[in-house]
Simulated assay, not measured.
Amino acid sequence: MRALTLARVGERAGYSRGIVTHHFGSKQALLERLSRATQAGFVPGLEGLPAGLDRLLRLIDGYVGALGQVGVFNRAFLLLWAEAATASELAPTFRERDDAFRADLRDDVHAGIADGTIRPDLIPAEVAVAVVGQLRGIGLQRLLDPQAVDTEGLRHAVTEHWRRALSTPTRMV
Rank of each mutant, 00 (worst) to 15 (best):
T38W: 11
S167I: 07
D150Q: 05
V158W: 04
Q141A: 15
V20H: 03
R102I: 06
D145R: 11
P120S: 14
A7K: 08
E83S: 14
K27Y: 08
A100E: 15
I60Y: 11
Y63T: 08
Q69L: 12
A111N: 00
L166K: 04
A103V: 02
E126A: 13
D150L: 08
G10V: 00
G25Q: 01
D54R: 09
L53Y: 00
P92K: 07
D61F: 13
L105E: 10
V20N: 01
G10Y: 00
D145M: 10
V173G: 14
E96T: 06
A103W: 04
E152R: 14
A100K: 00
R55P: 07
L6E: 03
M172E: 15
D145N: 11
R97L: 14
L49C: 00
R171N: 07
P169I: 00
E152V: 11
V173T: 15
D98N: 10
E160Q: 13
R119F: 05
G116E: 01
T38F: 11
A100R: 01
L31P: 04
D115C: 01
A85W: 15
L140M: 13
F24W: 10
F73Y: 14
V64N: 07
Q39F: 14
A165K: 08
L140K: 11
S16R: 01
T21N: 06
G48K: 04
L144Q: 13
R2W: 05
L53Q: 08
L79V: 12
S88W: 15
V131F: 10
V43K: 05
L140H: 15
G153I: 01
N74D: 11
